[in-house]
Design a protein around this nucleic acid. Structure first.
Length: 506
RNA sequence: GGCCCGUUCGUCUAGCUGGCCCAGGACGCUAGGUUUUCAUCCUAGAAAUCAGGGGUUCGAAUCCCCUACGGGCUACCA
């Protein structure tokens, strides 16, 4: 049976979406679009205690920035609406009840405190407590209580949860598109809570019910879900939805570049690179975490970086547009082991995109930064500056550091260069050059030739004069072609800067 | 502790159906070249005894087993 490909990205609004989540969304997107399928955004907010205001909006904005388009979802609607689990709350109970009716689940009345005591007790005996087929018969639930007692507990308003009843002695097979067949022994699995005492389903129930109702064909998610995949498989079986059970693909995790462990939200800016797509301010602590967007990464670059963290096309091509990625993507080229984020490579990718963009595109992004610095240059001028300088930076916001001299005369001069190049007779020669510039046609080639011939005629050291001239105009030994700079800043400014240098240095 | 997943240059990885691999590419690094500067760019180089040990085989990074290490999960969180 050919089924329409439908995937979903289903984050919890517990804070800013972390970059690993963005990658998961991206892989889902690439996969489904390659196959002409649908992409849905579902918000899994079944844990009211962890709800963070603004997080949902953040997720939507981040995904939009990165360039992932949704066919259905909280923000765009669709035939399976609503797409927010809290708005679907009333829907889940009947499914939990259905499971109970058919003996796949049971009510449990043990309080969190009671279970905690049990866990402590087991721990002190170096054992591990688990609510499972070995222990459930000794606990307070509808399996051990009589029907009347169970009924009484429920009607009297005592809090209860609904747990999945894992069958004993069963081997559960999870067929993973990335990892192959994974088998687990049902005796080792615990009876997970499906329905909480607050009337909300847990992830496991809501996830399976919604994926079924939304006709999801493939579940592509992080590897942290692999251990609970057997439960999900069993739920499909219990609901008799096996025919349309989605195929699973568990993605390798994104690891911390230093040390070990998976990259977490907590890592923040400790590692020198953002872990969030967009900047985020914690509504409670006001603490700000940097984002890729604000740091200066292009969304295309982030997509390219993320795509290569755990996947590769099998060719030598490294630069990919979103469309190219969609064409090239396939699940079987995803690696199995976790990937560490490489900051240097990330910068290199961004640099490649700076290179690719036109001076005009870069200028448009540089303009606001200039405004911030109090510079009011024309677009034409900024564009020319960018055309000369953009290849030298990884990020647009590094342009100021690299090209500020195009806008303001240097206030200081690199001491190293002064020490090495600025000699007794330098001012006199520069004075001559001022004259040359003043009296020669203000044209790049002519100016160049005239100054060079001056140097040659006087048998001067080329580097000496040229470097001092550069020092006067730029303030340091950096920047593009000297004559390009002169042409751009103009005759008067050039002369005034040289004069200023002569009067200032030494 | 238990269960599950993983392990090729510092990093991302190619290699998956065994010989073309004394392991290829990219980032980074080093050295040259271009640029009279810096950066870009170009070229070259160092860099993995394919986690270790056993098999299978004429032949293994590639197949099997064991061990070690790393990671994930083990909540009325997702």
């Amino acid at each position: 049976m050919e089924r329409k490909v439908r995937v979903r990205f289903a984050p919890s609004p517990t804070g800013p979406l972390h970059i690993g989540g963005v990658r998961t969304a991206l892989y889902n997107y690439l996969f489904t679009k390659k196959l002409g399928g649908d992409m849905l955004l579902r918000i899994e907010d079944t844990d009211q205690t962890r709800y963070v205001p603004g997080a949902e909006q953040y997720i939507i904005e981040a995904l939009e920035w990165i360039g992932i388009k949704f066919d259905e979802g909280v923000h765009v609607g669709g035939k399976c609406a609503p797409y927010r689990q809290s708005d679907r709350k009333d829907l889940y109970k009947q499914y939990a009840d259905q499971l109970i009716t058919f003996g796949w689940a049971y009510y449990a009345f043990d309080t969190a405190e009671e279970l905690e005591v049990l866990r402590k007790q087991y721990e002190s005996e170096k054992k591990n407590f688990q609510y499972d087929c070995n222990t459930r018969l000794g606990l307070k639930n509808s399996l051990t209580l009589s029907a009347e007692e169970t009924e009484k507990q429920i009607t009297s308003g005592n809090p209860y949860v609904i747990r999945f009843k894992f069958p004993a002695n069963t081997e559960i097979l999870v067929q993973d598109l990335i990892r192959g067949d994974v088998r687990m022994d049902s005796n080792l699995l615990d009876d997970k809570v499906l329905f909480k005492s607050d009337g909300m389903p847990t992830y496991h129930l809501a996830n399976v019910v919604d994926d079924h109702l939304m006709e999801i064909s493939h579940v592509i998610r992080g590897e942290e879900w692999l251990p609970s995949a057997p439960l999900h498989v069993m739920l499909y079986k219990a609901f008799e939805w096996e025919d349309t059970m989605p195929q699973f693909a568990h993605l390798p995790l994104l690891l911390k570049p230093d040390g070990n462990g998976k990259l977490s939200k907590r890592d923040g800016d400790r590692l020198g690179f953002p872990v969030f797509p967009l900047q985020w301010q914690d509504p409670k602590t006001q603490e700000i975490s940097s984002g890729y967007r604000e740091t200066g990464y292009f969304p295309e670059a982030v997509v390219n970086i993320l795509a290569f963290l755990g996947w590769n096309p099998g060719t030598e091509q490294e630069m990919f547009t979103m469309d190219e990625l969609i064409q090239a993507f396939s699940l079987d080229r995803i690696s199995k082991s976790g990937a560490k984020f490489d900051l240097e490579k990330a910068k290199w990718f961004n640099h490649q995109y700076v290179l690719q963009k036109t001076a005009k595109e870069i200028a448009e992004l540089f303009m606001p930064i200039l405004k911030d610095k109090g510079i009011n240059s024309s677009m034409e001028y900024v564009e020319q500056v960018c055309s000369l300088s953009k290849d030298r930076v990884n990020f647009v916001n590094e342009l100021w550091e690299q090209a500020s001299f195009f806008f303001i005369s240097p206030d200081s001069y690199d001491e190293q260069v002064v020490k090495k190049r600025w000699k007794e007779d330098t001012p006199a020669h520069l004075q001559k050059i001022i004259e040359i510039i003043g009296n020669t046609d203000f044209e790049k080639q002519i100016l160049h030739d005239t100054i060079i011939s001056y140097i040659e005629q006087n048998q001067l050291n080329m580097g000496q004069i040229m470097n001092c001239l550069r020092l006067s105009l730029v303030g340091a030994a950096k920047g593009p072609d000297l004559f390009e700079i002169i042409m751009l800043i103009g005759k008067n400014e050039t002369i005034s800067r040289i004069t200023k240098a002569i009067n200032t240095i030494k």
